[in-house]
Design a protein around this nucleic acid. Structure first.
Lengths: 247, 247
DNA sequence: GCGCCACCTTTGGTCTGACTAAACTTGTCC
DNA sequence: GGACAAGTTTAGTCAGACCAAAGGTGGCGC
């Protein structure tokens, strides 16, 4: 029994948390996941939400702000918020604000980079044992694209990412590609600051080729060794992007 | 001393995104990570923030709501928000709202569970090769506690989680324990709905013992085999927690 | 003197109404 | 038919108000 009930059209709000905005968030959340608000559609105008849910504009705006910070809607400053159906990407995007701070010091970067090595180690082992023919072909294509891009460092970076992305796709688990995108997004600032050159690119391409060959030959240990050698070598370059100005 | 100087800070905010609340979020965020607002401290009252930052209450409330949804502050309905220094846990907590929806269907659970298997596979391999003596002792202690708890299913669950937690600790990467906590939090609803019995517990303990032995004997392949057998068997029980009412 | 309860103050949650500026829509003119 | 101008929405923000719950304070009874 609540004191001042929201007697309006609002359905099952108030009870849960005592905070109307939270209830609204849950309500809109539900409409998004249920498909009532479809991906890509714009949210109704704030004034409409006001009388749809029977709450004040304050509450509506608070709710929308929270939804935006959770990645369920995308809200550019003066435009209508756009609904984004949540995926594992949205989940990781929600985390990225905090991660940004953790990356402020080298320790955070190292932890994240180690995590990436850890995961990709598992990925190449998995690939060596379970990759099917189309996977290996995709890997081959990515490798060729990588080779072709050696002279162009910007292009090389893109094909580099794409090559690793193939590894994340092989297990056919939607969480993993999302993790990869999160990694690249988080580490990109360091990656782009890294010195690059066709020679470096050539070395990296050769490492990729080692990985591809080991996977093709179904040699999990060799694949793991090639991968760790590749990423550990790359770390030396990543480290330079924040240790220089710091030490 | 800066009632009138507020203009300067105001313009600094405005420049970034056009939205005052976003700027406020960044500002408070910075104060938290810099330590100006210490972990566990309460946020100043909203009215104080109003004239500290020279914005209206609307903006302040919106900012606090966003901070709360990001896990930087903890805000219970009628209490003062409490500052929480962000860690990798906070990052994953921020994601959990979205993850909740992804777990609504079995596919999401399966994806997450597969991810867990994938990671723990890597963990036991890592442990078999790199665990130091104290790690192995910790694993042993966790295993003993697990055995002692066989008669008590609730206690067994706790020791089960603790056993796996040791695996996540061994690489000494702060990201991994956070991931483990996230996994257990997300999968707990299913886990607790699972039928449990001393017989089941005994089987699980034996699997844990297999894992521990393989790690102690530095046999990565055996450790991986024991782990996958353990988790795949457990999956059959997890599946029952949502396939029953669904099919 | 000590603990408990009523009272007052503070503060979070919400609402109303208003204003501005940017986006969207419409209509007009060349 | 397309570019430009005026009108209409609407997000962003502010100010002021009210309520109810949390927290502190003093007096009362024991």
């Amino acid at each position: 029994m609540d004191q001042t009930q929201r007697l309006k059209a609002g359905s099952a709000h108030k009870a849960a948390s005592g905070r109307a905005a939270d209830a609204l968030v849950r309500d809109i959340e539900a409409r998004i996941v249920s498909g009532a608000l479809m991906d890509g559609a714009t949210l109704p105008p704030e004034r409409d939400l006001i009388d749809t849910f029977g709450v004040s504009r304050t509450v509506v705006r608070e709710a929308v702000a929270v939804l935006a910070s959770r990645g369920l809607v995308e809200s550019r400053p003066r435009y209508r918020p756009v609904v984004r159906r949540p995926g594992f990407d949205a989940a990781l995007a929600a985390a990225s604000g905090v991660v940004g701070h953790l990356l402020a010091d080298g320790g955070g970067v190292r932890s994240l980079y180690d995590t990436r090595i850890f995961i990709e180690t598992g990925l190449v082992r998995h690939a060596a044992r379970h990759a099917r023919k189309p996977d290996i072909e995709a890997l081959r294509r990515a490798l060729d694209a990588n080779e072709a891009a050696i002279p162009d460092s910007a292009e090389f970076y893109a094909t580099d990412v794409a090559f690793h992305a193939v590894l994340y796709d092989i297990p056919q688990n939607p969480v993993l590609p999302a993790v990869h995108r999160a990694f690249t997004a988080w580490l990109a600032p360091h990656w782009t600051k890294m010195p690059r050159s066709p020679e470096r690119n050539r070395v990296n391409h050769l490492r990729h080729a080692d990985i591809e060959r080991a996977i093709r030959e179904r040699d999990a240990d060799a694949a793991e060794a090639a991968l760790t050698a590749h990423l550990n070598a790359a770390w030396e370059y990543v480290r330079g992007t924040f240790e220089g100005p710091r030490r």
